[in-house]
């Protein structure tokens, strides 16, 4: 009773997001003086099973095949009802986002989305989240139990390992509906490698100040080191230096990376409109009055031609 459940998908493995959810779950469980119970949906491979067993106190595996909303929701509801948890934590993947509010409703609990921090205050779960497009932060107290929260999972530290892996691993006993009114009939993975620019975590972007297409090759090296995606200002795209699909700004893509590194981008307001959701903006620009710096967390005033090669060398060294 009063356990904290974390809900993970076998298909994702024990990735960084799952680690964050587990970490958040472990700390909340500690606050409640309760156990951390992992529910894995799907059939996990050995590695995931071992990894989850190493952090959770108990593991339930619900091998219900490919995700179907209504079936998965029914399965999770049954498992949670049996366990009567204090909280159910989910990741920020697409399925979890779909499930969370409905699961909360079925459990008689309360849900909240996109949690950035969790606290237990006088027996109630409080969640911090960003609102008004990042302009404000809110603390939300969930009035009903269990608290069902999907988290911005990568923002949380991973869970510590238990002294030894749990052996309490069991399959769920479920009574699933046979007829449902929605069926996913096709799943399509698009451009596996080329993640969407809008989802990129790090972006290296070049502007008109580069002067020609060639410097983008240098920037690409920088991007490779940072695991970043490449982007550009309208001027650079218009000049034909890079494809139009790279364009970020009011008439291009709106991005929200953790780091947006603007190289030789002056920072016209139309460009800034496309990066207002970036968490950190950094810039390399020769003009210290360039408007881009007003949006920057940090910057360097220097000719990019001097900075970029040195930066590549330094980052390579630091990464090792």
């Amino acid at each position: 009773m009063n356990d904290v459940i974390i809900s993970l998908f076998a298909s994702a493995g024990y990735d960084r997001a799952a680690q964050g959810v587990a970490g958040a779950g472990r700390r909340l469980a500690a606050d409640c003086g309760a156990q951390l119970h992992a529910v894995i949906i799907g059939a996990p491979d050995a590695a995931m099973k071992a990894a989850v067993a190493a952090v959770a106190d108990a593991v339930t595996i619900a091998d219900i095949g490919d995700y179907q909303t209504e079936i998965c929701l029914s399965a999770l509801t049954q498992i949670c009802k049996t366990l009567a948890p204090q909280a159910v934590l989910l990741s920020n993947d697409f399925y979890s986002q779909e499930l969370a509010p409905r699961l909360a409703h079925r459990l008689g609990g309360s849900a909240v989305a996109d949690g950035l921090a969790l606290n237990l205050v006088e027996g109630k779960v409080r969640v911090n989240r960003s609102v008004y497009g990042g302009k404000a932060m809110a603390t939300i107290e969930l009035q009903r139990s269990p608290a069902v929260v999907w988290l911005r999972a990568r923002a949380f530290d991973p869970a510590p390992l238990r002294p030894e892996a749990t052996t309490a691993i069991q399959p769920a006993t479920l009574d699933l509906p046979t007829r449902v009114s929605t069926t996913i009939i096709e799943r399509k993975v698009e451009a596996g490698d080329e993640a969407r620019l809008e989802d990129a975590k790090v972006i290296v972007s070049g502007g008109r100040g580069l002067g020609s297409p060639e410097p983008f090759n240098e920037l690409q090296k920088l991007a490779n080191i940072l695991g970043a995606q490449m982007a550009a200002s309208r001027a650079a795209c218009d000049a034909g230096w890079v494809p139009p699909s790279w364009q970020v700004g009011q008439t291009g893509k709106k991005v929200a990376p953790g780091l947006y590194l603007a190289v030789a981008i002056h920072g016209a307001s139309q460009h800034l409109a496309g990066i207002s959701d970036a968490k950190n903006i950094a810039a390399i620009n020769i003009d210290k009055d360039a408007p881009i710096f007003k949006q920057c967390r940090f910057g360097i005033v220097e000719d990019y031609r001097k900075v970029v090669p040195l930066l590549i060398a330094r980052l390579n060294a630091l990464k090792k």
């Binding site: 975590k201 790090v202 940072l226 953790g258 780091l259 590194l261 968490k279 950190n280 950094a282 810039a283 390399i284 210290k288 710096f293 007003k294 949006q295 920057c296 967390r297 940090f298 910057g299 360097i300 005033v301 220097e302 001097k306 900075v307 040195l310 930066l311 330094r314 980052l315 630091l318």
Partner: peptide, 26 residues
């Protein structure tokens, strides 16, 4: 929102700081 302009005596020192800040946020 005040941009931190990395400082240092040499360009290398400034790039070093810049690189470190990148590693910090990423």
């Amino acid at each position: 929102l005040n941009c931190e302009f990395v400082d240092g005596d040499t360009l290398e020192a400034r790039v070093e700081k810049f690189a470190q800040r990148i590693i910090e946020v990423t």
